[in-house]
């Protein structure tokens, strides 16, 4: 590949990012889509909401697990969505008897989840409900993390679980333990491997980019909701490009 084509590819990439941003911002100006009205229903998240309300009603706990997102890795993106969802979930469960508990498998996520918990309670003037130990790093290797989070599932009066973040196949251990105890499990990840095992084990798996839409569906609003529009626009663009490219090649064209 020549330097010229490399430069062209780089600029095309930058233009794509700029376009993506423009569509997101345009959505803010035109109309922010709202879950339940403008967004297609996501069964897993709908059931999650129901499970959360039943959890609050029964005086039990919601357990949110944010996975093993590394600070400087794209896996952190789904971890950030998890943090936003956590903020929303805390406000939905703050009226309950037992506070939401969070587990993470890396230091940065542990720090951020603790900060998010504090921030969410502070926003609702319920600072006294915040306990630093409600956000925990449960292990530093995948299976150690799963074992530690499994202990939370088993001992903390959990009724509903939401796993959203970067996981590997170890997430199956968590989901299986929760399922064996009759707890509700909704789970999403950016990893294909984790999605494959979650499909078999979790009660409500989130597939593909559904994990990234979770915060928007839980009412994060604003740019979270408009980024779904941008994702849809670019998804159709990609489909058109792939189909067009295949047809082009089929008729003998050379890119």
């Amino acid at each position: 590949m020549t330097a010229w084509t490399t430069g062209l590819t780089d600029i095309a990439g930058l233009v794509c990012v700029a376009l993506f941003l423009a569509v997101m911002l345009l959505g803010l100006v035109v109309k922010v889509p709202r879950p339940g009205r403008d967004l297609r229903p996501l069964h897993a998240l709908r059931r999650l909401r129901q499970a959360i309300f039943l959890t609050v009603e029964s005086g039990q706990r919601l357990h949110v697990s944010l996975g093993r997102g590394l600070l400087m890795h794209q896996q952190m993106a789904v971890g950030m969505v998890g943090l936003r969802a956590l903020e929303r979930l805390v406000s939905m469960t703050a009226a309950g008897d037992r506070p939401t508990i969070v587990t993470a498998g890396t230091g940065p996520l542990g720090i951020l989840s603790r900060s998010t918990l504090h921030s969410a309670y502070e926003t609702h003037h319920w600072e006294e409900r915040y306990r630093p130990t409600d956000a925990r790093v449960t292990g530093l290797t995948p299976f150690a993390y799963a074992a530690g989070a499994g202990e939370v599932i088993a001992t903390e009066n959990v009724a509903a679980n939401f796993f959203l973040g970067a996981f590997g196949p170890e997430v199956a251990l968590l989901a299986d333990q929760a399922a064996a105890r009759g707890e509700f499990v909704a789970a999403g990840s950016d990893s294909v491997l984790a999605q494959a095992v979650l499909y078999a084990v979790a009660e409500e798996p989130l597939i593909g980019e559904e994990a990234f839409a979770a915060a928007a569906y839980l009412g994060a609003g604003g740019l979270h909701a408009t980024s779904l529009i941008a994702e849809d626009v670019f998804r159709w663009l990609l489909i058109a490009l792939m189909v067009g490219g295949a047809l082009f090649k089929l008729v003998g064209g050379h890119p």
């Binding site: 129901q50 406000s91 939905m92 703050a94 009226a95 609702h124 003037h125």
Partner: peptide, 13 residues
């Protein structure tokens, strides 16, 4: 369901 706990929380906000 959505109204009750959310509204409880938001009333404080």
């Amino acid at each position: 369901n959505a109204l009750l706990p959310e509204a409880l929380g938001e009333a404080k906000q």
